[in-house]
Amino acid sequence: MFRGRIVRVVCYYRDASLLEMIISTFRKLLIDIDWVYGRKVSDDGLYEVVLGVRDSRNFKTAVLDLSNTVNVEVVEVLGDSEGGNYITNESINGNEVVKIYIPKTDIKECYSWGEVCG
């Protein structure tokens, strides 16, 4: 189980500054990021970016700021249930070179341009 906070950002990709904006929203509020992964969801440029960030008193502010960022459709705060998986790639001489934690999550709350759900 991941001991920080997990955030899923559903957003439209225009250029790679999208990732900078997401990451810097946390950086500007002194919140460290433990891991991040992202993928394209649809052909019209919809992406999801999932981040594991350290808990912080600024966490809510970061989420709210992100939810008002141009190109960001919605920000979900995910609950990390027990039973997340690690995917490892042991392709080089049996050494573990890539290790990705895929949390098993559910949406606790979400924010989109002033609207709240969850």
Partner: peptide
Amino acid sequence: VVKGYKVFK
């Protein structure tokens, strides 16, 4: 046309 931008309701 701005994807991922909404005017506050």
